[in-house]
Amino acid sequence: SSPEYTKKIENLCAMGFDRNAVIVALSSKSWDVETATELLLSN
């Protein structure tokens, strides 16, 4: 995975989300952090 994707994963994990959930959310939202965060918060 690219450093850009890794940084997005790390940033969301730092907010307390599960790493696997973060990866699923990001990949399902075309790696857009904002919409992935909304998805994680709604679960």
Rank of each mutant, 00 (worst) to 15 (best):
W31T: 10
L39E: 14
D32T: 02
L39I: 08
E34K: 12
Y5V: 08
L40K: 06
M15T: 02
S2W: 02
L26F: 02
M15A: 06
T35L: 15
K29M: 11
A14T: 07
E38W: 10
F17P: 08
K7W: 05
N43Q: 14
K29P: 05
N43F: 02
N43H: 10
I9E: 05
P3Q: 14
V22T: 10
W31M: 05
K8C: 03
W31G: 14
T6N: 11
T6P: 04
P3D: 12
E10S: 08
A21D: 15
E4T: 08
T6S: 11
N20V: 09
I23G: 11
A25D: 02
G16K: 00
I9N: 02
L39K: 07
N11V: 08
S28C: 08
P3M: 13
K7R: 10
A21M: 06
S28I: 14
P3R: 09
L41W: 10
L12R: 02
V22Q: 09
Y5A: 08
V24G: 15
L39D: 10
K29S: 14
E4F: 03
K8R: 08
L40T: 04
N11E: 14
E10A: 10
I9T: 02
K7E: 12
S28G: 07
N11C: 08
S2T: 13
M15Y: 02
A21T: 08
V33R: 05
E34P: 13
V33P: 09
I23A: 13
D18L: 00
C13P: 02
N20E: 15
S1T: 11
E10V: 03
S27T: 15
C13Q: 09
E34Y: 02
L39P: 05
F17C: 05
D18R: 04
V33D: 03
R19I: 05
G16M: 01
S1D: 11
L12M: 07
R19V: 05
E4N: 06
K29G: 12
S28Q: 14
T35K: 15
L26Y: 01
L40Y: 00
G16P: 02
L40W: 01
P3N: 12
E38C: 04
L26E: 11
A25M: 03
N11P: 05
A25G: 03
V22D: 12
S30T: 07
L39Y: 12
D32I: 00
S2G: 09
A21Q: 12
S28L: 08
V22N: 04
N11K: 14
T37G: 08
F17N: 03
N43R: 15
E34A: 12
S2E: 10
A21N: 06
T37C: 09
V33T: 15
K29L: 07
L26C: 09
K8V: 08
L40E: 06
L41R: 14
S1V: 10
S30L: 06
L40Q: 03
V22Y: 00
V22S: 10
L12F: 12
E38H: 10
F17G: 05
V33L: 09
A21V: 05
A21P: 04
A25K: 00
N20D: 15
D18I: 00
M15C: 05
L26T: 05
V33N: 04
N11D: 06
E38Q: 15
K8W: 00
S2D: 08
S1M: 14
S27Q: 07
I9W: 00
I9Q: 05
D18V: 00
K7V: 07
E4G: 02
S30Y: 06
K7N: 10
S30D: 13
D18A: 08
M15W: 00
V24K: 15
R19T: 08
R19D: 07
E4Y: 06
D18K: 07
D32Y: 10
L40M: 05
V22H: 05
V24D: 15
V33W: 02
F17L: 04
L40R: 03
G16V: 00
E34Q: 13
R19P: 08
T6W: 03
Y5D: 11
T6A: 08
V33F: 05
E10G: 04
E4S: 07
L41C: 07
N20Q: 14
L12Q: 03
N20A: 13
V33I: 10
E10P: 00
T37W: 06
C13V: 14
A25C: 02
S28K: 14
S27Y: 03
S2K: 03
A14R: 09
V24T: 15
S28D: 13
N20H: 09
N43V: 07
N11R: 12
E38M: 06
S30N: 13
A36Q: 02
T35F: 06
K8Q: 10
K8T: 10
L41H: 08
L12T: 02
K8G: 03
I9R: 01
V22L: 01
V33Q: 05
T35D: 15
I23W: 05
K29C: 09
Y5E: 00
L39N: 06
Y5T: 11
E38S: 12
L26V: 01
A25Q: 03
D32V: 04
I23M: 12
K29I: 02
L41F: 09
T6E: 07
A25P: 03
L40C: 02
T6K: 08
C13T: 15
A36I: 00
L40P: 06
I23D: 10
S28Y: 01
I9V: 06
E4K: 05
S2A: 07
T35R: 15
L26S: 07
T37E: 12
F17H: 06
G16T: 00
T37S: 09
A36N: 01
K7G: 04
C13R: 04
D32N: 14
E34H: 04
A36D: 01
I9K: 04
M15P: 00
P3W: 08
M15K: 09
V33M: 13
F17K: 03
P3V: 13
A36K: 02
D18W: 00
V22F: 01
L41K: 13
E38G: 09
T35A: 15
F17M: 03
S2C: 11
I23L: 11
S30F: 04
L40G: 04
V24N: 13
A14G: 08
A25V: 00
E34M: 07
V22A: 13
R19C: 03
M15E: 05
S1F: 15
L41E: 15
N20Y: 05
L41M: 14
V24Y: 10
T37Q: 14
R19Q: 09
D32L: 01
T37H: 10
S42T: 11
D18Y: 01
V33S: 07
L40N: 03
Y5N: 11
K29H: 15
D32R: 03
L39F: 12
S30R: 11
S28T: 14
N20F: 07
D18G: 04
I23V: 13
G16Q: 01
A25F: 00
Y5F: 13
I23K: 14
K29Y: 03
S30P: 03
M15Q: 12
K7Y: 06
K29W: 00
W31F: 15
V24S: 15
A21S: 11
T6V: 01
A14F: 00
C13W: 00
C13F: 05
N11Q: 14
S2L: 06
C13A: 08
A14L: 05
V22P: 04
S1G: 10
L41D: 08
A14S: 11
A21G: 04
E34N: 10
T6Q: 14
W31Q: 08
S2R: 07
L41N: 12
G16D: 06
D32G: 03
N11S: 14
T35P: 13
R19M: 06
A14P: 00
W31S: 08
L26R: 07
E34G: 11
W31E: 08
R19K: 10
A25T: 04
V22W: 01
F17E: 08
P3L: 12
A14Q: 13
S30W: 04
E34R: 12
A36M: 03
W31R: 08
A14H: 08
L41T: 12
S28E: 15
E10K: 07
N43A: 11
S27D: 12
K7H: 10
C13I: 14
N43K: 13
S30E: 14
S1R: 09
K7C: 05
S30V: 01
E38F: 02
D18F: 01
E38D: 09
V22M: 03
K8L: 06
K7A: 13
S30Q: 15
Y5M: 12
D32F: 01
S2M: 09
K29D: 03
R19H: 04
T37L: 13
M15R: 07
S28H: 13
L40A: 05
A36F: 00
R19G: 01
